[in-house]
């Protein structure tokens, strides 16, 4: 299920300049991909276009076979009237209860799911939010800084587990962490400022998996390419 954007141009209503002008990109198939770039270049805007929140732009996004796109961001909150576990149980399909427990364990949330969302730390809140999205039916999940405030070790554990649990799904991970996107993502879409052409450059990432040995040389090269492209 490739996702391909062609000749995309967009300007926010009443904004002076365009966010995108003739932007082209392609994401090949399922896997863990990244959208990388400095703040303000339009990563969230592009994510919202992919999820259908922003419409009325010029150009096309072809996503044959992608039925459901979900977009999640790191400032989301769970309602405060029940604890995190009760909320998960409410929104998880009955068949997905085992997966729910698995995710709670992988995300290191066993001790926290009995608490209200507002009592959790920022990192725990982001993990709880991501779990509920992973319990939904989706083809493409866009994770906009979804693992912000989570320590490096847990982040790595989560990404690797997600790759194992959802091999047939597509993820678009938005992050400012070069090393992370270079190491874990198969394709890194580097979004650049409007003045540069092309506005988006695709770089091959290492797509590191749990069982595989990581190649430091390959990682370094991918990081350099990303930094150079940005």
């Amino acid at each position: 299920m490739p996702i391909e954007g062609r000749h995309i141009s967009y300007r926010y209503p009443n904004a002076a300049g365009e966010v995108f002008a003739d932007l082209n990109f392609r994401m090949d198939g399922p896997g863990f991909h990244a959208l990388f770039g400095p703040s303000g270049v339009g990563k969230t805007t592009l994510a919202k276009m992919l999820s259908g929140t922003i419409r009325g732009f010029e150009g096309t996004i072809a996503d044959d076979g992608v039925r459901r796109v979900l977009y999640t961001y790191n400032l989301e909150r769970l309602p405060g009237w029940s604890n995190v576990r009760a909320h998960f149980e409410e929104i998880a399909p009955l068949a997905g209860r085992r997966r729910m427990e698995e995710l709670i364990e992988t995300f290191g949330m066993e001790a926290n799911v009995g608490s209200r969302f507002h009592r959790l730390s920022l990192g725990q809140q982001n993990r709880a939010n991501l779990i509920r999205y992973l319990l939904q039916d989706f083809d493409l999940l866009i994770m906009d800084e979804s693992l912000a405030n989570v320590d490096e070790f847990t982040r790595e554990k989560i990404i690797l587990k997600v790759k194992i649990l959802f091999p047939d799904r597509c993820f678009l991970y938005i992050s400012h962490n070069v090393a992370e996107v270079a190491k874990f993502c198969s394709q890194v879409l580097v979004l650049r400022s409007r003045s540069r052409s092309p506005q988006l450059v695709a770089v091959q990432g290492c797509d590191h998996r749990e069982s595989a040995e990581s190649d430091p040389g390959l990682l370094e090269r991918a990081m350099l390419e990303i930094v150079h492209a940005a």
Partner: peptide
């Protein structure tokens, strides 16, 4: 928005 987004995007 930060609470409703999930329910809107999942059709709940």
């Amino acid at each position: 928005r930060e609470i409703e987004h999930f329910y809107e995007s999942t059709g709940r």
